[in-house]
Write a protein that binds this DNA or RNA. Structure first.
Lengths: 271, 271
DNA sequence: CGAAAAATTGATTTTGATCAACTCCGGTGG
DNA sequence: CCACCGGAGTTGATCAAAATCAATTTTTCG
């Protein structure tokens, strides 16, 4: 409702060359058929610009739309009755917003933009239809959802068992990797509208403690923050601190079964 | 591999009357067509008994099977390199084990039984085929996966922002509710093989602190533990402490769109 | 019965929260 | 141009929650 007011739909020129963050991300994990790419890009042709601090989804209310975040940044979070906030994850370009909206009547958490952001909304039905038309695309959507669940699990482990130092290291590694997927980060740095309060709410810490721990990471030469740009001089070392094993998320490489199977299953087994 | 050794497949009599925990759970959220029920029950005809403390899935290895937990209990957890353990969730009857196995090449976390348990393994392909044959069943599986993700998010919020007292209250409420879904708990008590160490690893606490906090909950008359039976004399009060709003998980009632939509342009075939 | 696992308890330490300034910086308006 | 404002970041002091260490008791179970 809130962000719905100005119906300033912008039609992207259909002949856009550069792939969306979504297809870029997917392309790094699996071979996309041209028609899969077409279907995914088609979802995003109608985009909409949303100002900062806008609630795209409100916990407890019905989902209005499903969308893909095309450009900008958002958080998915939950407020406790007494006002405490926990950020469940950061939403970066190429991520779906409110994919649950397809199957749940009401939202269990909120989503808010962090800066001026472009989203591509579409109806739930559009997704369902796409899934029905192509089993492969259904598999891709399920894969994306599972990937998100895996990241949630990792986060849970980090919150449950890691120190503040480790948690911050973890978050920086995660953001670097995810923004790289979207083609928005280079080898060791990224730009993202983080504040210490956001870090605190994402990691279950107080802002004061985030500040002190960040100071320590800076002193240790592991993180450099200049404005909105975060540089990780030694991502490997940071990943070690974050308890991330070699190729942690590379693990999410899709299994051949569901995703490389338009009609004919190919047997690509390794041992 | 481990639990695979004795191929003691037990064929349930096909005319079993009582529904599986899975269909019981689903039935509480949505109207299942008879043929959906048949398909779900068919998945579980071949079941296998697994002893306690058996690893059904091992992090870092390929998934072997997908299965449904029919009877018993398990945990999904992750070990950090230095041995710390975080339990990601408890697996109760009616839950899938390793649903990610459909789409990921390797498991990112482990699953271990807590007691003698019956699981119904089946191939990934079986699920994919079911989903392709009936969009409604595909929707149901996606709904189950989303429900799990929602519970994960809730857990994350609890770990990030709640005290030990609140966390324990939360976990007891969650288990009560989930076991009720499976038809395994009455209004205010359930039986489950919990130890204080398990509670600690699930909630990101030390066992000592769990012990003290549990003592406090007991003293406050909110939890009674006798052997493996947990009684919550006042689930409402406990839910309040756990920061659970009215009908928290009832929120996961499915949206009509995806799940009440048997009519499909394509092959919706009868079973 | 006896060993091992689980639960309990006390003492102490550590981590991180809370409270309270205070600084730095980027606007914004006079 | 500059004073001022507000938000974010920084710092110190203190407090509280939870971890850790170390026994000890109770329960479970072969």
């Amino acid at each position: 409702m809130e962000w719905y007011a100005p119906p300033s739909v912008r039609q992207e020129p259909p002949a856009r060359q550069n792939p969306s963050a979504l297809t870029r991300k997917l392309g790094q994990f699996m071979a996309l058929s041209p028609c899969a790419v077409a279907a995914l890009e088609a979802l995003q042709v109608a985009s909409r610009e949303v100002p900062a601090r806008t609630e795209l989804v409100v916990q407890g209310r019905a989902h209005r739309h499903l969308s893909v975040l095309v450009r900008g940044a958002a958080i998915r979070y939950k407020l406790l009755p007494d006002g405490r906030r926990q950020i469940i994850n950061f939403v970066v370009p190429g991520d779906f917003i409110g994919l649950h909206g397809c199957v749940f009547a009401t939202a269990s958490n909120s989503v808010m933009t962090l800066q001026k952001t472009v989203v591509a909304p579409f109806s739930c039905k559009a997704i369902v239809e796409i899934g029905q038309r192509s089993p492969m695309l259904a598999g891709i959507i399920f894969w994306l959802s599972s990937l998100e669940q895996t990241m949630l699990s990792e986060r849970l482990v980090t919150l449950g068992r890691c120190s503040a130092y480790e948690r911050l290291a973890y978050l920086f590694c995660e953001l670097l990797e995810r923004l790289q997927w979207a083609g928005l980060a280079d080898e060791r740095s990224f730009t993202f509208p983080l504040s210490q309060e956001l870090l605190a709410d994402a990691l279950g810490l107080s802002t004061v403690h985030v500040n002190r721990t960040l100071t320590r990471l800076r002193r240790d030469g592991l993180v450099i923050i200049e404005g909105r740009t975060v540089t990780l001089p030694d991502p490997q070392a940071l990943a070690m601190i974050a308890n991330l094993e070699e190729g942690h998320l590379a693990r999410c490489r899709p299994a051949a079964a569901a995703l490389t199977q338009p009609p004919s299953p190919r047997s690509e087994s390794a041992e």
